[in-house]
Nucleic acid binder design. Structure first.
Lengths: 231, 231
DNA sequence: CAAGCAAGTGTACGACGTATGCCTACAGTG
DNA sequence: CACTGTAGGCATACGTCGTACACTTGCTTG
């Protein structure tokens, strides 16, 4: 089997392994989007026949699960901090950071769990759940309460990230024109408010929005905890 | 052009229009999932050549946007209510209800906006935004504040719905076995808490979870409003 | 060295979205 | 009535996709 003269840094030389394959997949997705990830394209990028990839990933879907796992591995884990609220805030910003680095992965990161029962998910994708459980249980929450907080927290977080990624645009000027035009096109009778909110819509600060959202959540949680403790 | 003898209720008889096409697409997705929706399958279901569908939808992606619009049309709009918090709670449950009716549509409902700027979205998909803006502005919020509340609220809502749909299972007994097995498979060192939380994980009440989440949000909002009003 | 296994490839199939050009039916107009 | 324009539909084909299956190659181990 001749392998010399194949283009690319590591492509075509040495044996593949799962990590190499998944990493190349992530690079492809980051560069050209989810739909650009085909087994043929990936095989080409690695200097291999596409069929070779099936030695390292069961199929395209499972490969994408590996990509998600790889992205979540980039989440930094923090030393134990006694302030669980500060911890949650940090985790939120960390997930935001990672998702902003890999915006094209977010759709599959967010919808993947819909088609994979928790018992079948790759361990790496369950790390955030374990992390929050650990943080909250260490802070005195019962496992049930910790789980409820996780659901509310991550529910909001995913929603926020989806919102923020919508605001990412290549060209802000072009976006403004498009938005104003699009809003004008809406029927006045049905959209009296939205039609005149272009300035507000154009002003978006994702980090601040996230901070405010987390504050709302934590305030509300604080109040609920006070209520259930005061009983 | 002979049209007689074509199977199906309305399939094959009369002219298509966009509504018929989009509705048939929704039925296909509801029955067999998003991936089952191909132009060929849809054409077959309608007793038409797949190429005929392009007269009514620009392409598959735009067709899916129409499906989402159709689903959002099912959201009931309520008479004006002076209690904006009760309104928000109702809207949340209404969206939940509709999403539970069409779980297969949720992935595209949630991720669609990532690839379509707001100015290019079908008007129907912007109805929820307008509704919340209207409700909050009528309750005295400024447009900016209303927009921020919308983002926090809908962010949480989408996250909650994604969570809840994960919990939908065909066979609860099989799910339990799978979950227990899956949790046991996790390394104890990395997942000390999650590994023993099968009972808690198995107990899920989506409606209650949503109610509690909304309460958390509204409490937190109430507190933030009190802070900014007390300035 | 031989056997076994992991990694890789050749070939092909069924399926996909949609470009392009042509056909049919119908409505409107002179 | 004949003609034109338009909406709806279809035939053909192309490039692309995921992956089944069988075979080949390379490496490791006894």
């Amino acid at each position: 089997m001749e392998r010399t003269g194949t283009p690319g840094k590591d492509a075509g030389t040495g044996r593949l392994n799962r990590r190499i394959v998944v990493r190349a997949a992530l690079e492809l997705v980051d560069a050209d989007g989810l739909e650009a990830l085909s087994m043929r394209r990936l095989g080409q990028a690695l200097g291999r026949d596409p069929m070779a990839l099936y030695r390292h990933a069961a199929g395209r879907k499972e490969l994408l699960a590996g990509v998600v796992e790889l992205v979540l591995e980039e989440l930094e884990v923090f030393p134990d901090d006694t302030d669980w609220q500060a911890q949650l805030r940090r985790m939120a910003h960390e997930l935001r950071r990672v998702c902003l680095l890999h915006p094209n992965v977010v759709p599959v990161l967010v919808t993947g769990p819909l088609s994979t029962p928790l018992g079948l998910r790759p361990a790496g994708t369950l790390k955030p759940l374990e992390q929050i459980l650990g943080t909250l249980i260490a802070a005195g929450f019962t496992p049930v309460s910790a789980l409820h907080v996780y659901r509310a927290f991550y529910g909001f977080l995913y929603g926020h990230i989806l919102n923020e990624l919508q605001e990412l645009v290549a060209d802000p000027d072009e976006n403004e024109a498009l938005l104003r035009l699009g809003l004008q096109r809406l029927p006045l009778r049905d959209f009296p408010h939205l039609r005149r909110m272009a300035p507000e819509l154009l002003e978006y600060d994702g980090e601040r929005e996230l901070d405010q959202g987390i504050s709302i959540l934590l305030d509300g949680l604080g109040q609920q905890l006070a209520v259930s403790t005061g009983r």
